[in-house]
């Protein structure tokens, strides 16, 4: 489910999370959300609020603009 399915927010949360060696549950606990919500975000099926985007960026030690984008992000393998 997205805030606006017509205008999705792309992200590289999964890559940044794996780079830090965090599980979805650990990231969820640090960001104060349910682990299913991290799954929805990583699948780009849900677009976060600004507050949640800022919280996740802080946990993953990234700039919001590096982590989230309005255009598709090329995923690193």
């Amino acid at each position: 489910m997205s805030r606006n399915p017509e205008d999705p927010v792309y992200n590289r949360i999964e890559a940044a999370r794996l780079a830090m060696g965090l599980t979805r549950q650990e990231l969820a606990d640090k960001a104060g959300v349910h682990y299913q919500t991290i799954g929805y975000l990583e699948r780009e099926e849900y677009s976060p609020s600004l507050v949640l985007a800022l919280r996740i960026s802080k946990v993953l030690d990234q700039e919001v603009s590096d982590l989230f984008s309005l255009s598709p992000i090329r995923k690193e393998k």
Binding site: R3, V33, T37, Y40, S49, V51
Partner: peptide, 12 residues
């Protein structure tokens, strides 16, 4: 007790 996505899903 819910996060923002769960609140949105509940309200829908």
């Amino acid at each position: 007790l819910l996060d923002e996505r769960q609140i949105q899903v509940r309200d829908t």
